[in-house]
């Protein structure tokens, strides 16, 4: 065999999660979740409302503190980090794309300022450089250069979402959390965004954890899939395998419930 892939079994996961549990009193938020995420990998988390996928994402991204479990990022124990270090990670190496762009953007600040904020937060102090970089990123997310001084309030929903993505990716993060990024968008706008995300994932080697209830989105975007129900992971595997040959009763129900177009 001459053309085997580079051995990928020896490299280290970027994010390693084990036994992650979060309870809200007696109610389970998520329970005993474990997985590894490798560089360049897109992991989809699907499940219906209340399945624990949002709780899990909040725990992973540092917005919620889990009750039990371990999260290791790049060989560092995330839960043992001080808040300063965790928040620094949150604006350099990590990114978080909210479902509603209004939660992830500063609506009173121009598009350029929104993109430049993370740069300034890590010490960029040259206006011209910041502006050039902002313009470059607006271009990458297909926002016209002459909109750089407009506020997001003047943008359509799809543009706002793309701006949020540019704002997040400008510091070249390695791990991106996405919460229903295509949620509130028209179908045609969704497609454009999906295409954009795929290209960025591929070109930048991003690792992504994407929470959604839209199976079509994960089929096109995620390499691997985790199916959650009642706070637990009921099935995980290769995305197309989980969708085409689901093993768990719940996944079978989920897949068969999707309307065919």
């Amino acid at each position: 065999m001459t053309m085997m892939p580079r051995t990928i079994t020896t490299d280290e996961p970027l994010l390693a999660v084990s036994g992650l549990t979060k309870r809200y009193g007696a109610r389970i938020g998520c329970a005993d979740v474990s997985f590894d995420l490798y560089p360049g990998e897109v992991l989809g988390i699907v499940g219906e409302s209340g399945s624990g996928k949002s709780t899990l994402l909040s725990c992973l991204s540092g917005h919620l503190r889990p009750d039990f479990g371990r999260i290791t990022y790049d060989a560092r124990d995330v839960l043992a980090m001080g808040e300063t270090e965790r928040r620094r990670l949150g604006r350099t190496d990590w990114a978080y794309v909210h479902q509603n762009p209004r939660d992830g953007l500063r609506m009173g600040v121009s598009a350029g300022g929104n993109v430049g904020e993370r740069l300034m937060a890590i010490g960029a102090r040259h206006y011209g450089d910041i502006r050039d970089k902002a313009a470059d990123w607006l271009g990458r997310v297909e926002i016209a250069a002459d909109r750089i001084d407009d506020r997001p309030t003047a943008f359509s929903g799809g543009m706002q979402q793309r701006l949020q993505i540019a704002r997040n990716l400008v510091t070249s993060p390695r791990l991106v959390f996405m919460d229903e990024p295509t949620g509130g968008l028209d179908v045609s706008v969704q497609a454009r965004l999906l295409d954009l995300l795929r290209g960025l994932v591929r070109d930048l080697g991003l690792s992504v954890i994407i929470v959604t209830h839209d199976l079509a989105v994960v089929r096109l975007l995620a390499h691997r899939l985790m199916v959650m129900k009642g706070g637990r992971v009921v099935e995980q595997g290769l995305t197309d395998q989980v969708l085409d040959d689901p093993q768990h009763a719940y996944t079978q129900l989920l897949v068969s419930s999707v309307l065919q177009v």
């Binding site: 808040e83 300063t84 928040r87 604006r91 500063r106 009173g108 600040v109 121009s110 350029g112 300022g113 430049g116 904020e117 993370r118 740069l119 300034m120 937060a121 890590i122 102090r125 206006y127 910041i130 502006r131 750089i148 001084d149």
Partner: peptide, 29 residues
Amino acid sequence: LEPRETETRKMHELEEYGLMHVKLYEDIA
């Protein structure tokens, strides 16, 4: 730039002052 008092105190605590420059950036823009 950040109306939440809880958040601005946290920003002072952690020296997260990027936002101040966003204000100046907006001025120049």
